[in-house]
């Protein structure tokens, strides 16, 4: 077998399914978040909106906050999963397993490829569960779509997720290779997630942010991921929280290319780092 990344991938997935508590919590957490935070916020938004009586333009589908936010929860879940996903490399470094790997004939980039693949797989599983749970809670994804269209929507969502997951697991791998302690890794990762999560359109439209932060949100990959998920899961023209959202295919394509470019750069960064790392 010349595909060493499959070996890395298999090991990482085995570990993912082996720790039942961790697996359970990682799958349940986003669902609970959607359940509690989402329901509460949805209730409040809907009350405020009904009192102001914002009119929805004719012919535009109106979706509730829960539906709007569900896409953001999926995006955030993937962000969290992957930004911490490179921890395995720190674990391997501290337990010496990275030495076994580095001293083997396997090309080092296979290590990054394998971990990126498992990050993508985990992200797909998680997003699927959040979507299913969301549908149970009344999220109106894929409304008015036939089976084939739903399938296409899923494919679109999964492509966006794969690119984003790859980018952030590579960032995480880079941090893990540079750090010596779990605390340092945790600290840096958490520091990164904060602005990424809040300076985006995941929980609310970015138009509510101060102008400077709006610019930042524009280049935030999370914004583009959320846009992609909303486009495929809700539609290209809908209204939520009293605002109209229009996504043209061109915009979505740009988001996709942006994520692909970003993922490529991050992969190169992680690859370069693992190629140069000296572990004794």
């Amino acid at each position: 077998m010349k595909m060493g990344f499959l070996n890395v991938y298999k090991r990482d997935m085995t570990r993912f399914f082996r720790f039942k508590h961790q697996l359970f919590s990682s799958l349940l957490q986003p669902a609970l978040w959607l359940g509690f935070f989402g329901m509460a916020m949805a209730g409040n938004f809907d009350r405020i909106l009904s009192s102001t009586g914002t009119a929805v333009p004719a012919g535009v589908m109106s979706v509730d906050y829960l539906t709007f936010m569900c896409a953001g929860v999926i995006a955030a879940t993937i962000l969290f999963t992957n930004i911490y996903g490179g921890f395995i490399l720190l674990f391997d470094k501290n337990w010496g397993i990275l030495r076994e790997i580095i001293a083997s004939p396997m090309p080092r980039r296979d290590l990054i490829t394998g971990i990126a693949m498992s990050g993508i797989t985990k992200s797909w599983i998680q997003s699927l569960i959040v979507i299913l749970f969301g549908l149970l809670l009344g999220v109106s994804f894929f409304s008015g779509k036939g089976p084939l269209e739903i399938l296409i929507s899923f494919a679109g969502i999964f492509i966006f997720i794969a690119l984003f997951a790859m980018a952030f697991i590579c960032i995480s791998a880079f941090i893990a290779l540079k750090m010596d302690s779990p605390e340092g890794f945790q600290g840096i990762s958490t520091l990164l997630t904060m602005p990424l999560f809040f300076v985006s359109n995941a929980l609310y439209p970015a138009t509510g942010l101060p102008p400077v932060l709006q610019q930042v949100a524009m280049i935030n990959p999370l914004t583009h991921l959320t846009a992609g998920i909303r486009y495929f899961a809700i539609g290209d023209n809908f209204s939520a929280i009293g605002m109209q959202f229009v996504y043209t295919p061109g915009e979505i394509l740009i988001s996709l290319l942006y994520l692909a470019f970003f993922a490529g750069i991050m992969f190169l960064l992680a690859w370069r780092t693992v190629d140069k790392v000296v572990i004794t």
């Binding site: 077998m1 010349k2 060493g4 499959l6 070996n7 298999k10 090991r11 085995t14 570990r15 082996r18 720790f19 337990w95 076994e100 790997i101 083997s104 004939p105 396997m106």
Partner: peptide, 17 residues
């Protein structure tokens, strides 16, 4: 620590193709 004896050796064998 979280892999079995067999998995440890399989992983190693795969590293060396």
């Amino acid at each position: 620590r979280d892999m079995t004896v067999r998995e440890t050796l399989e992983f190693h064998g795969n590293l060396y193709s």
